[in-house]
């Protein structure tokens, strides 16, 4: 049961880092990829059908933490309090910008929303940097501020941005795609995306090992209550996400609702 709980936590957390990381990264480089208002809308269209489905992986991670690892949840969230609070703030600001951008046709409004998306995405990425750096260095009760932790945090945020560029290159066409491809060098954009995804998975695993989750699960009776339904729906969740990716697999050529 404990192993199963850890496996589910890993699945949702790593799924979030790879999928959510991509749309956070695109948000970070939005002003760079989209120079005109129209181009920015296309860049947003690259993540529009996915970002809602991506961030639920983190909500599910938080759910598994709360349900299957309650002692760990409160100690880690409380221990890494400033980073978690900043993450939450950035997340709300960024999502608000994404949701609202297309609703009012005015330059100032769009500029506000673009700022919210970019600043929010950077806040989220840097918060993840701080959280992952602390966990990798074995600190679960305090955000590390040593030079090496800060350097790791910045590197993690940079990785999110590169991951976003690679994802944008896979999704877009025209000049935004051209700009997104700059980092790819001679290798293809899909290769870069695979590499950044793998790097994020490795980071997630390193951080996860630092938590030693197997010994900090909920009571056995709770796991017996919680895990079977979760296990039952997980293939359905993956199937629905697969349906979304399949439906929107083509490159973006026109703006969408956002």
């Amino acid at each position: 049961m404990n192993t199963l709980a850890v496996a589910l936590l890993g699945l949702f957390a790593l799924g979030y880092l790879v999928l959510g990381g991509a749309d956070i990264g695109v948000g970070m480089v939005l002003p760079f990829l989209g120079r005109t208002s129209r181009d920015r809308r296309l860049v947003i269209a690259a993540i529009a059908p996915f970002f809602l489905g991506n961030e639920v992986w983190l909500v599910a991670t938080a759910g598994v933490l709360a349900g299957a690892f309650p002692p760990m949840e409160s100690s880690v969230l409380h221990g890494l309090y400033p980073a978690v609070a900043a993450l939450l703030l950035g997340w709300v600001v960024r999502d608000t910008g994404l949701w609202l951008r297309g609703r009012v046709d005015a330059r100032g409004w769009r500029a506000c929303c673009d700022t919210a998306i970019t600043a929010g995405s950077w806040t989220v990425a840097l918060s993840w940097g701080a959280i992952l750096a602390s966990l990798i260095q074995g600190s679960t009760t305090q955000v590390r501020t040593t030079p090496s932790a800060i350097a790791t945090a910045l590197a993690v945020a940079g990785l999110f941005a590169v991951h976003g560029m690679a994802f944008a290159a896979v999704r877009l066409t025209g000049s935004p795609r051209h700009r997104a491809r700059r980092l790819c060098g001679s290798s293809g954009e899909a290769t870069l995306l695979a590499a950044t995804s793998a790097a994020l998975v490795v980071l997630g695993l390193l951080a996860g090992f630092g938590l030693e989750p197997a010994g900090r699960t909920a009571d056995h009776a709770s796991l017996v209550f919680l895990l079977p339904p979760v296990l039952f729906v997980t293939p359905l969740l993956l199937a629905t996400q697969g349906w979304v990716w399949w439906t929107f697999r083509h490159r973006v050529t026109t703006a969408t609702y956002l």
């Binding site: 529009a48 059908p49 996915f50 970002f51 809602l52 489905g53 961030e55 639920v56 992986w57 909500v59 599910a60 938080a62 759910g63 598994v64 709360a66 349900g67 299957a68 309650p70 949840e73 909920a218 709770s222 209550f225 919680l226 339904p229 979760v230 729906v233 997980t234 359905l236 969740l237 629905t240 996400q241 349906w243 979304v244 439906t247 609702y257």
Partner: peptide, 23 residues
Amino acid sequence: GSGLALETITAFFVESTFVGLWI
């Protein structure tokens, strides 16, 4: 925590994924 966990995974996860699909 179990109630919250089941909410996020068996309900909210699907709801949000499908809201995106619907829009």
